[in-house]
Amino acid sequence: WVQCTKPECRKWRQLTKEIQLTPQIAKTYRCGMKPNTAIKPETSDHCSLPED
């Protein structure tokens, strides 16, 4: 599990088994990010989705 770092969101998201949760990902994670590439989402507001 990882928490969105966006102050107005802070929702918890479940990561897939393939993703290694590192301190860097935990510090920078935003809803919809692909942690294995550290690319921020380009599409709609993933923070608007219900918490996992």
Score class of each variant (00 low, 15 high):
2 V>M: 00
3 Q>Y: 00
5 T>A: 02
11 K>N: 05
5 T>E: 01
23 P>H: 01
34 K>G: 12
20 Q>I: 04
33 M>I: 11
35 P>I: 13
25 I>P: 03
47 C>F: 04
43 T>Y: 13
18 E>N: 15
52 D>A: 06
29 Y>K: 07
37 T>P: 09
14 Q>H: 10
43 T>I: 09
42 E>Y: 10
34 K>F: 15
49 L>M: 15
44 S>V: 13
50 P>A: 12
32 G>E: 06
22 T>G: 03
4 C>V: 01
36 N>S: 13
25 I>M: 14
25 I>H: 01
27 K>Y: 03
37 T>N: 07
15 L>F: 08
21 L>R: 02
40 K>Q: 15
11 K>P: 00
44 S>C: 10
45 D>K: 12
40 K>V: 14
15 L>P: 03
26 A>V: 13
45 D>W: 07
21 L>N: 07
39 I>Y: 07
19 I>T: 09
14 Q>F: 03
21 L>F: 06
4 C>T: 01
14 Q>S: 04
15 L>D: 01
19 I>K: 05
6 K>M: 14
21 L>Y: 06
51 E>H: 12
42 E>S: 10
40 K>S: 10
43 T>D: 12
35 P>K: 04
51 E>G: 10
16 T>C: 03
48 S>E: 13
9 C>P: 01
32 G>Q: 04
4 C>F: 06
23 P>D: 00
52 D>P: 05
5 T>I: 03
8 E>Q: 11
26 A>M: 14
28 T>P: 00
22 T>H: 07
44 S>W: 06
35 P>F: 15
36 N>H: 04
18 E>D: 11
24 Q>C: 06
7 P>C: 06
45 D>F: 10
50 P>F: 07
16 T>Q: 05
15 L>Q: 04
38 A>Q: 13
3 Q>W: 00
38 A>S: 12
20 Q>E: 07
45 D>V: 11
44 S>E: 14
46 H>L: 10
30 R>A: 10
43 T>R: 12
19 I>C: 14
32 G>S: 04
7 P>D: 12
32 G>K: 01
18 E>H: 13
20 Q>H: 06
40 K>I: 13
8 E>P: 05
39 I>S: 09
11 K>C: 07
18 E>I: 00
15 L>E: 07
28 T>C: 09
42 E>T: 06
20 Q>M: 05
33 M>L: 07
45 D>P: 06
18 E>F: 07
29 Y>S: 01
37 T>H: 09
18 E>G: 12
27 K>Q: 11
21 L>W: 06
1 W>L: 04
29 Y>A: 03
51 E>T: 13
18 E>A: 06
30 R>G: 04
18 E>L: 04
24 Q>R: 04
3 Q>P: 00
24 Q>H: 08
47 C>L: 07
27 K>L: 08
45 D>R: 08
35 P>Y: 15
45 D>N: 09
7 P>E: 06
21 L>A: 05
27 K>M: 11
17 K>Q: 05
13 R>N: 05
11 K>M: 03
3 Q>A: 02
19 I>G: 11
3 Q>I: 00
19 I>V: 13
29 Y>N: 02
34 K>E: 13
50 P>M: 14
5 T>P: 01
47 C>A: 12
48 S>I: 09
14 Q>Y: 02
46 H>F: 13
22 T>Y: 02
16 T>E: 15
35 P>Q: 10
16 T>P: 12
33 M>N: 06
11 K>T: 03
33 M>R: 04
1 W>F: 02
22 T>W: 03
6 K>H: 06
22 T>P: 01
30 R>S: 06
